[in-house]
């Protein structure tokens, strides 16, 4: 029996590459869990587009029931300069909502990797569970799917595109003081 490993004409990457990509995503999650934001920024390509649209509940008859479209309200629709500013806030001693620190766990799963559109790029799907805790009882759970473009460079793998789609239309949290 053969198992189909192609989508839309793209081939799944070989096992060694898949392992590298998965390790890249796990390392990223660990850096975010431990608030190593500068190291996290170093994993991103300079032309990063980091997009987390706001999710809308629409009837299937309207826009095919699409929950999100480009150019509309979003949680993140960032280029490198925006992500650097967000990191700059995290690092301020007066970032009151980060002190005492928020306790983070990012769980990454369902990693699926294919050849990308450009040479040396990979299309990588994954899912995440993000659990954040603050004070005694503030516990926020976010679950969603990601579509990434990860690029192989001379300096190693770099995240070049990320789309983050969560399940909630009404965010069940007062903020998103993390990256996903």
């Amino acid at each position: 029996m053969t198992i189909t490993t192609e989508i839309a004409g793209r081939s799944a990457v070989d096992a060694a590459t898949a392992y590298q990509l998965e390790t890249f995503l796990k390392r990223e999650a660990r850096l975010l869990d431990t608030e190593r934001y500068d190291d996290w920024l170093a994993m991103l390509a300079d032309d990063i587009h980091y997009w987390m649209p706001s999710i809308e509940s629409r009837r299937r008859a309207n826009n095919g029931g699409a929950t999100h479209l480009p150019g509309r309200m979003a949680y993140f629709d960032d280029f490198m300069e925006h992500l650097q500013k967000r990191v700059a806030r995290f690092k301020q001693p007066t970032a009151w909502a980060e002190d005492p620190p928020t306790r983070h766990t990012h769980v990454i799963s369902n990693v699926e990797a294919y050849a990308g559109e450009a040479e040396g790029e990979y299309l990588v799907y994954s899912t995440f569970v993000n659990y954040r805790s603050r004070v005694e009882t503030d516990n926020d759970l976010l679950i969603g799917r990601r579509t990434d473009v990860i690029r192989a460079t001379q300096d190693g793998l770099r995240l070049a595109r990320r789309k983050i789609v969560i399940t909630q239309t009404l965010l069940q949290a007062k903020n998103i003081n993390t990256f996903l």
């Binding site: 629709d77 009151w96 949290a173 998103i176």
Partner: peptide
Amino acid sequence: KERYRRGTMITFSPSGVFEMDDGENFE
């Protein structure tokens, strides 16, 4: 308009660098 969309997002939205600190105060 596009700059306003990104600007309000990065400042005053749940992921915004200003609003993040408001929520805990209000709560």
